[in-house]
Design a binder for these strands. Structure first.
Length: 917
RNA sequence: UGGCGCGUAGCUCAGUGGUAGAGCACUACCUUGACACGGUAGGGGUCCCCGGUUCAAUCCCGGGCGCGCCAACCA
């Protein structure tokens, strides 16, 4: 067995074994008596390559699944890929652009062929990358949101909603992305804050003389102004009520209206230009006053025919031109800087243009009610709980959902427009004649559906709905939905809505929301910043040169490259999937940010190596002994053996609890600390003298405990670190009839695989205190651990004496490399000048032959200072009458006992100090 | 403007009404037969500030300051 663990060899080998042996598969058999546990993966975009966010999803979900699989559930982890409408179309259009073509050159059918072609060649890449992280999905069930069956589900839901009056077509002011030329839902619009813009003022001449000055950040929209509004109570403008102003470019009379909702008297001039066709507030105002909605910006972002001399200009060019013309006409009234927020498209980044357009909408209010109720009643639990408030807030203020998109790549809308009577025929299959006029001139709606509309059906569409499949029967509702909090509205809320409405049942029992993975400074990873850490590089390692090259290719800024050089001067070692997984798990999942640090990954790489070497040690000690892990807790009599089983029990209990309650940090932390701080630091050290004992029964017991504890620890860690644990498990000697592999071995249970033994813990902690005291003296006085020390130990009472004479004395001597003499109970040895006196709990430890008296004095003084500090804080309580009178009796008693012990310790140390002079 | 959250060691973060923790970093010593991807010992904190409740507050409550996210938004 090599001295250091190398994940590069182990990981692909075991993954292959698991997958080929069918160990990831759910049975799917209706008769299987096991309870089910189901997770539907948040499907990554087909355009995507694995990033840290995905790695986080894969890790968390794989941990959940592996834990439940080992715990005996019939587990199904449903994998898949999302067709990602806009993102994918943009990528393929970019490819075409390189060939000097647009999608319009190809036409719709040819273009879609190209997208499918592209999907075939790159679609599986991310699935392969998920495997590298150890994802134990049931791969044979992999679904794509544009599969034939899935499309049927989408169509079915659309038609049903339409039939129920919940899907409707309407002309509204919508968010328009002029770059990709499609409508966006409210959620796809992001606001850029603190943009420095200008507030431009100009005058409208009032009919019959005078003028009113209005202000705007978008001068070009004045071409579509169909009113000027003042506040009805504004005394400055009462003379304008009922008047008209003249539009300087169009031959148009524009009415002055009074509107208390739109106008804020205190802002600007108190007069507002009203452009109903291009502003949400103005749109609402227009409805209130029956104003004309004049569209002046076209879907292509250019000014429309209605704009006269400005027609055809790009919206931003038109802004300049309008301003210039107003200057010429003498109507400009200056401008001032203005801080504002800009709505931008999440996809293209372009400024979103409010436009009047006819689109398909889902009526959300009737659907939101049950979705709120389901959470209120606990049928869906959201963790961390704080998010439920956010969920309610959004659901209670819900707006109708615009679901049509002017794209080619996506689910086609199952609606056919009649060219003769304009009737809209919504149907599951293409109709041949119009249901209204029997005309055969039917044209399918050219739009596709919002990708999130199909995603909303994910938990049941993946299981075969609308067919009544056995899978659907067995695995719906799913168990946990684990995902990033950033898509709570986009996806989770909509899945709950659709699950309840279509299936009549929640889509999952729990929602587990995780934070965003950022770089170690807490900054979002972005190609431009150059701080993207590719999970695959972490697994297999990468040089700084390769990292820089990749960042450069990704378009990183020079400052980003500097950051890379500074932060990762050595590049990455091959840390392995287990190390990355443990690192991600070590952060509290609910944190808003998971600030991933490479140093931390290195720490868990070291942990994997620690576990590897603990096993290496054990295998050496077990060789040819016939000791095997039986899967049953061995009987233990020796203190160290009882103790390690007790500590293992505590760790197992914490691991199970943490895994059940979405506290992966607690679960992984408990096992990490058990393995490193207790198993390796204490038990393995104590086992060395035990295994050298002449007592054959003791040696046999210790071997049995050693192999059991290690094998159980490995099983307990498996969900988190599947690769190294599978490898070690395969090497550990096991009794016949054991499980096929660690991945399907039973998950350890508190009380079964280990058992709490409080007296063993108490007694061993005394041993630890004594050992630490000796080490402290050694470290302070005589650096060399090679020097053998002579020690006298004074036990506080007869019981302690018995314990130590029964074996602890030998252990302590062996571990501290010293000859330990156990003093008779009640002896107070008069310490010689070269003897250091240490106090370990109630024990007095005398270390003889100490050379450096000055250092020993310093050590004692430090100890006394610390005791004084502790005593002062206790005194503050015990001297307080209120504390004695009102604090619980056991708390008071505890403080008194502690004070007594500290005073005794102090007395001992002061006496020792006196000896030193 | 509203909602949610955060402020704890140099850094990244756990945590609790009664003794303040981890990982990394730091200091000293140690290549001991599992492991230098290691061991032993050690240094390091006004738990953001001000009030209140309490015998006792880092924790609960109120206010402030700073920061983040989400939602809304004045042309």
């Amino acid at each position: 067995m090599p001295k250091a663990y190398d994940p590069r060899e182990t990981e692909p080998r075991w993954y292959d074994v698991w997958e080929k042996s069918g160990l990831f598969r759910a049975t799917g058999k209706p008769g299987d008596p096991r309870e089910t546990y189901v997770v539907a993966i948040p499907p990554p975009n087909v355009t995507g390559s694995l990033h840290m966010g995905h790695a986080c999803r894969v890790t968390f979900e794989d941990v959940l699944i592996r834990h439940k699989r080992m715990a005996g559930f019939d587990t199904l982890w449903m994998p898949g890929i999302d067709h990602a409408g806009i993102a994918t179309q943009v990528v393929v259009e970019r490819l075409l652009k390189a060939e000097g073509k647009t999608r319009h050159d190809l036409g719709r059918a040819k273009f879609l062929e190209r997208v499918w072609q592209w999907k075939e060649q790159s679609g599986d890449r991310i699935l392969m990358q998920q495997r590298k992280l150890g994802a134990s999905c049931d791969w044979e069930r992999t679904r794509f949101t544009m599969d034939e069956g899935y499309s049927r589900a989408v169509r079915e839901v659309f038609v049903r909603l339409y039939e129920e009056g919940l899907m409707y077509r309407a002309t509204r002011l919508v968010n328009w992305d002029v770059e990709t030329r499609t409508v966006l839902s409210d959620l796809e619009v992001e606001t850029e804050e603190n943009v420095q813009g200008e507030l431009f003022e100009f005058a409208y001449p009032v009919e019959g003389g005078g003028e009113v000055v209005v202000a705007t950040t978008r001068p070009e929209t004045m071409l579509g102004d169909t009113a000027v509004a003042v506040h009805p109570d504004d005394p400055r403008y009462t003379h304008l009520h009922g008047k008209f102003v003249t539009h300087p470019f169009a031959e148009r009379r524009v009415p002055v209206i009074c509107d208390g909702v739109l106008v804020d008297m205190a802002f600007g001039t108190g007069v507002v230009k009203v452009t109903p066709a291009h502003d949400p507030n103005d749109f609402a105002t227009g409805k209130r006053h029956q104003l004309e909605e004049l569209s002046v910006i076209g879907l292509d972002g250019k000014m429309t025919e209605a704009c006269g001399e400005f027609a055809g200009l790009d919206r931003f060019a038109a802004r300049k031109a309008v301003k210039a013309r107003l200057e010429v006409l003498g109507l400009a009234r200056g401008s001032k800087p203005h801080t504002m927020t800009l709505p931008r498209s999440q996809r293209s980044g372009t400024v979103v243009e409010p436009m009047i357009s006819t689109q398909w909408f889902v009526k959300m209010e009737p659907l939101a009610g049950p979705a709120i109720e389901a959470v209120e009643q606990g049928r869906v639990q959201i963790l961390p709980e704080e998010w439920t408030k956010t969920y309610y807030h959004w659901m209670r203020n819900i707006q109708d959902w615009c679901v049509s998109r002017q794209l080619w790549w996506g689910h086609e809308i199952p609606a056919w427009h009649c060219e003769d009577c304009a009737h809209i025929n919504v149907a599951r299959t293409a109709p041949t004649v119009c249901g209204e006029c029997q005309s055969t001139k039917l044209v399918q709606d050219p739009d596709v559906l919002d990708t999130w509309f199909s995603s909303a059906l994910w938990p049941f569409a993946t299981l075969g709905w609308p067919d009544k499949t056995p899978e659907l029967e067995r695995y719906y509702p799913t168990s946990d939905m684990e995902t990033g909090f950033d898509i709570l509205f986009f996806w989770v809320a909509r899945m709950i809505v659709m699950g309840l409405h279509i299936m009549g049942e929640v889509p999952f029992r729990r929602v587990l929301l995780a934070g965003l993975v950022t770089d170690e400074r807490g900054e979002k990873m972005s190609k431009v910043k150059g701080n993207v850490v590719d999970p695959i590089d972490v697994l297999g390692g990468s040089t700084l040169e390769a990292l820089l090259e990749k960042a450069t290719a990704g378009g990183a800024k020079p400052s980003g490259l500097e950051y890379l050089k500074k932060t990762y001067p050595e590049g990455f070692a091959a840390y392995g999937a287990d190390a990355l997984r443990m690192t991600l798990l070590s952060y509290a999942p609910a944190q808003r940010k998971i600030a991933l640090s490479i140093k931390r990954i290195e720490g868990y790489r070291n942990f994997a190596n620690k576990l590897w070497n603990a096993t290496r040690y054990a295998l050496g000690k077990l060789e040819n002994s016939g000791a095997v892990a039986t899967g049953k807790r061995p009987n233990a009599t020796a203190l160290a053996n009882r103790w390690v089983l007790s500590r293992l029990d505590v760790a197992i209990a914490a691991a199970n609890l943490g895994l059940d309650e979405y506290r992966f940090d607690d679960a992984s932390g408990a096992l990490y600390h058990f393995v490193w701080d207790e198993l390796c630091d204490w038990y393995l050290e104590l086992s060395k003298p035990l295994l050298q004992s002449d007592d054959a029964a003791l040696v046999a017991e210790t071997r049995a405990v050693l192999v059991h504890v290690l094998e159980t620890s490995v099983r307990a860690l498996h969900p988190m670190m599947p690769f190294v644990t599978e490898e070690l498990w395969s090497r550990l000697p096991k009794a016949p009839g054991h499980a096929q592999a660690c991945i399907v071995a039973p998950y350890p249970q508190s009380g079964l695989d280990a058992v709490r033994d409080e007296s063993a813990e108490r007694e061993l902690s005394e041993l630890q205190q004594v050992i630490v005291a000796v080490r402290q003296v050694r470290s302070e006085n005589e650096a060399s651990p090679a020097k053998r020390l002579a020690i006298t130990l004074e036990p506080p009472d007869a019981a302690a004496h018995t314990l130590w004479s029964a074996g602890l004395a030998g252990l302590a001597g062996a571990v501290t490399n010293s000859d330990l003499t156990l003093a008779a109970t009640g002896t107070k040895t008069d310490a010689a000048v070269d003897t250091a006196v240490a106090v370990a709990g109630a024990y007095r430890v005398l270390v003889h032959g100490v050379v450096d008296l000055a250092k020993e004095k310093a050590r004692l003084e430090r100890e006394v200072t610390k005791l004084d500090k502790d005593l002062a804080s206790i005194a503050k309580k015990l001297d307080n009458e209120g504390f004695i009178a009102r604090a619980p009796a056991d708390v008071v008693e505890k403080e008194r006992a502690r004070r007594a012990e500290l005073i005794e310790q102090r007395t001992q140390l002061v006496a020792a100090l006196g000896k030193l002079g």
